[in-house]
Amino acid sequence: MKRSLLTLALAGVVALLAAQAIRPSLGTPAGPQAEIAAPPEVRAILERRCYACHSDTPKLEWYDQIAPPYWIVAKDVRNARAHLNFSEIGARPAGAQRATLFEAVNMIQLGAMPLPSYLAVHRDAGVTPAELATLKAYLAPFTPSTSPTPATPPPASSTATERPAGPSLNGVPFPADYKSWKIVSTTDRGDNHTLRLITGNDIAVKAIEAGNISPWPNGAAIAKIAVQAVDDGKGHITAGNFIQVEFMEKDAEKYKSTQGWGYARFRGNDLKPYGADAHFDQECTGCHAPMHDHDYVYSMPLPRGGGAQ
């Protein structure tokens, strides 16, 4: 009895030692180094809290170096850099870098970053409220503009097409009747100077009326219509050119692999389907993941029914 326990313990130690030999790589830098363009106080926070995974200089604690924890960390780093690498993002346009920082702040605020599984082990690695405030103060999305938005000419193909150039690359259908959908909410997006009208089909509207949106019923569909926010320089903001319309169509079975929702985006007046291939929607699910408690929907619908209009 005692002997077999000893053998087992010994086998365990041997297995652990052997495991150290299996060292999956952290991945190699994909592109040239170009650190994110941001002031030093912002860079310092990203370096402290995020560069461990999202940079060309991943930083592992000594206890992360031991397998099997090492395997988890290596996988996270590879995955993290594939999604976002602060050491290479500096090569992208300023607007894109800024959009990434907004996404970063929102992931932090929603408790999605740094990864909760990482924070469970690295207790002091989380972003502090003061650090979050510094990031927000830098981004300052609603800084009043003192000059009017420069006039942009209407898009070249100004003849409305009524129909997209093609289906969404992941097969989600374009809902031909979306122009008759009812309001769900609106948003004023200071982060990217757009106004958004969010609408829903009949099933979505009935679900809101019944308070039955956790989860949303199959067949519910939500549209997010984005237009340029045109500022007259005196604080009056009106809707400019149409930018894009995005859809989420609920079907728990059919769209099982993408959070139970079919995601689609059509851009410009010719409603060009977004993305390079059928997997463009990984971008959508990545951003919506922190809202898993809300059936992956960010919007809070305006109340309907129950005495309300």
């Binding site: 609603f142 009043p144 008759s180 009812k182 309001i183 909410s185 609106t186 004023d188 106004l195 958004r196 009208l197 609408t199 509207v205 809101i208 308070g211 949106i213 956790s214 926010a229 500022d231 005196k234 604080g235 009056h236 903001i237 009106t238 809707a239 809300h294 809070m300 619908p301 305006l302 109340p303 309907r304 005495g307 309300a308 209009q309």
Partner: peptide
């Protein structure tokens, strides 16, 4: 946190306005 209850149109409106067709959104910063 699921429904924007702050924005409820309480009161007696003669029409179900939220069921009309939404046309456009504007903002007044001031």
């Amino acid at each position: 946190d699921l429904i924007n209850t702050d924005a409820t149109l309480h009161g007696q409106l003669p029409y179900p306005i939220l069921s009309w067709t939404p046309l456009v959104v504007t903002v007044d910063r001031t």
